[in-house]
Structure formats: C-alpha cells, structure tokens
Design a protein around this nucleic acid. Structure first.
Lengths: 221, 221
DNA sequence: TAGATTGTTAATCGATTAACAATC
DNA sequence: TAGATTGTTAATCGATTAACAATC
C-alpha cells in the first residue's frame, strides 16, 4: 500500500527568512504585472525585474508547492493567490498602533497597508491631549487600555511607533496581552518571548546602508 | 626593505551587505550602552544583546580593522567613532525628501534622523496647495525645481515618499541631478543607474514577514 | 512537433561558527 | 601571573546557481 503522500507543508522554521522576504517582492511585482494587463509571467521575467536569477525565483516558490506550468510559466492571478496564502495575507489582519507621534500618524494614514490586507483598528498614546481624538477615523485610546483593547478588539498584530525608551515596556504589554506579532519602528532591539514574532524597522539604519556605499564609492574611485 | 603595509581599506564591494546592515545595529547598541554609562563592552555582550554569536561580531568588525583590545574588549566611544566612520555618518548628510503626504510629513518630523547625522534640507511635492508652505521648518518646493535644487543645495541623498506610480520618474530626476543615493518608500522596484545606491523600504512587506510566521506557527502547532 | 519553461538535483559559492594562539 | 578577550584560521553550514529531464 502506498504511503499517504504527505501534504507539502514545510516546517516554516525550515524556510529561510530571505525566501519569505523575496516572496513579498514577487507579490508586488505580480500585482504590477496584473495592473499592466499581463496574464502570465515566468521565473526569468520576475527575476529580471527584481534583480534575481530565474533559478532563484523557481527555487523560492518550490519551497511551498508547484505553482507554475512547464512551458507556460506562472499565471499572475494564480500565483498572487498562492503567495498571499503562504504569507497569510489572504485575509484581513487587525492591527493595533501604539504611539501617535509623527510616525504613528503617518502609519495610520498610509494607504499601502489596506491594499495588502492590514487594517489598523486601534491607536494608543499616553498624551492626554491626543486620547479621545479621532485620527484618520480611528479613536486614540490611552495606553492603560492597551492590554484590554487588544483582547476586546481581537487585535493580532502590533506596531510600535513610540520613542525608543518606551518601546520595551509597550512590547511587554503587547506580549502579555497575547499579541501574535510586532513591527517595531523604535531604534531598539526588543526582548520578546520566543512565541511572539518581532520585526524591527529602523529608518536611520536604511539611510546608513546608503551612506556606506556612497562614501566608499567616492573614496575608492 | 619591508613592503609598505597597505591600508586596510577593503574593496567595499567585497563586504557583504549583511555585515554592513549589522554594523548599524552594533552602533545603536553601543549608543545605548554609552547612555547607560558603560565604558567598554565585548563581542559576547554585543552578540548576546542583538542575538548574534560573539564570533560573528568580531568577524564583522575585522572586515574593517582592529578596533578591540585583547583581554579588555571594545571601548564604546572608540567603536562608535570607528563604525560611524565606516558607515560614513561621521559627518552630516544633506537629504532631500520628495512627496509630502502622510509618510513624507512623518519623515520630516522624525527625530531619529538628526541623531544619526541626517538632515532633511529640502522637501518637494507637486500639490500646489503644499508648495510654498513650511513643514517642520522646511519649505516645500515644486517638483519642477527638484533637479535644480538638488544641485544648489548640495543634496546628496534622496528619500522618495510619493505614490508608487510616480516613484520611478522621481527617481529618474534624482539620478539625472547627480544624487548619490536613494531610499525609496514606494512599493516598487526602481530601475536606477548602477552609479546610484538604492535601498527600498516597503512597510507592508515588513508586516507580511510577521504574518507569515504567525500564520504558520498557529497552523503548525 | 518544436519551443518554452518548470521543478529539482548536483555543484558552487559564500557566510557563519568553532577553536585557539596572541595579547593585555 | 591568571583570567579575559581579541583577531584569525579552518571547518561547517546553508544558500545560490547551473544544468537538465519532465512537461505543456
């Protein structure tokens, strides 16, 4: 009797983070292709546009299943659906935003989130002047209500946009409230339980990557 | 006669980008240590706090010189100076910001840039209502003045915070004006001349990295 | 069919880690 | 000195690329 063919559902820990990060890029590119009226694409086209080899594109996708059609390529809409399912963005995610300063306000107003399935449903700040006000249609709550609201509103993801010194204690509250994952915009490395996924975004750091290249290019040439 | 010992100035292309990206993290951590009154640290301490091995910390730094003291470790202020020099942030950089929407305004107000040596000296938008106004002390100029102003104001770096469909043409103008590097916040892959360093920051993409982990953790456990 | 393109294996390449002599 | 920690080499590990049979 043949063994039951096991579902190709790889241990997510076995998938390199670099692969997942490229998956998002493939998704963006496919969305652009669809917008341009393209029905299908190929690993070499995707690779060319993003600066990868065709082999890498195929290998990355092969981690998760067979999405292509030999001789044809990939159907854009099919692959978009597949990648969204892999990334978990085939549904809406309820997001809580902590810190309504300059950056927080921008995140609240940023249209790019909704397009990809993210909805900021609650905002928090400890400035009494801001609490109770409506920013982009979302009411600002006090930080004291953070844990409580996470549960009531069924918030699954948190974004931290508070000043660096406050970021860790906000993270602690989010974790205690059972948040699933955190995107942290404060320039500190957070210590969170291994149960909670954390990604850090440091805007100045991105600029530093550029200055390294620019400085050394000028010096070297 | 002994050969002139060549300056340890490695081909910047030979330094993996991952190393440079960690350099920024070391810098942040060292700044926190200084703020806490610490004078010295060690590769194992830095590694522990950031989640790397001690060997990796030493190897990364060894790409650029000998900054440590055997038996002692690293002097925080010394290493901060060394890393800033490597990253090129031992001086101020003049930055131009294109796109004064939600995100652009936040970038203008973000304090984290100045702390690391970045100064936004010009802002651009093609909305006539915004042109001429003052945002965070910076006058908003028309996009038509972009190329001209880059040169007059000696702007070396550009940040793009316009909607995705306009990002490429903004990048083209920046490149034509001789910009050194670009940080792009629009969710598109820009095509720029190889002479210009480009880094992309896609906020939704960061969230997708989190949802991947959260989705699959829940599914798997 | 001929041409195109996938999924996958094996080979290559590069990055991380472990270990240790040199140093303070 | 003994203990601590670096810088560096060699060994390991993992990721990328090249190549090609299978497929449409």
């Amino acid at each position: 009797m043949p063994e039951q063919k096991p579902e190709t559902r790889p241990d997510p820990n076995a998938v390199p983070v670099a692969v997942v990060s490229r998956l998002s890029l493939y998704l963006r590119e496919l969305q652009h292709l669809i917008a341009d009226g393209k029905e299908t694409t190929s690993s070499s086209q995707l690779g060319r546009q993003l600066g990868f080899t065709d082999a890498q594109v195929r290998k990355d996708l092969a981690h998760f299943g067979h999405f292509g059609h030999p001789g044809i390529g990939y159907r854009c809409d099919e692959l978009i659906g597949a990648i969204r399912k892999i990334l978990g963005t085939d549904r809406q995610w309820r997001v809580g935003l902590v810190g309504i300063g300059n950056l927080g306000r921008a995140l609240l107003g940023y249209r790019g989130f909704e397009q990809q399935g993210f909805r900021i449903v609650a905002a928090f700040d400890n400035d009494p002047v801001k609490v109770g006000t409506l920013v982009d249609g979302v009411e600002v709550c006090s930080l004291e209500q953070l844990g409580e609201t996470i549960n009531q509103q069924q918030i699954e993801l948190g974004m931290i946009a508070v000043p660096a010194p406050q970021a860790q204690q906000v993270a602690d509250v989010l974790v205690a409230a059972g948040i699933g994952g955190i995107v942290n915009f404060a320039p500190v490395t957070l210590r969170v339980s291994g149960q909670v996924c954390q990604v850090g975004v440091d805007l100045a750091r991105e600029l530093e990557q550029v200055t390294f290249v620019v400085s050394n290019r000028i010096a070297g040439s």
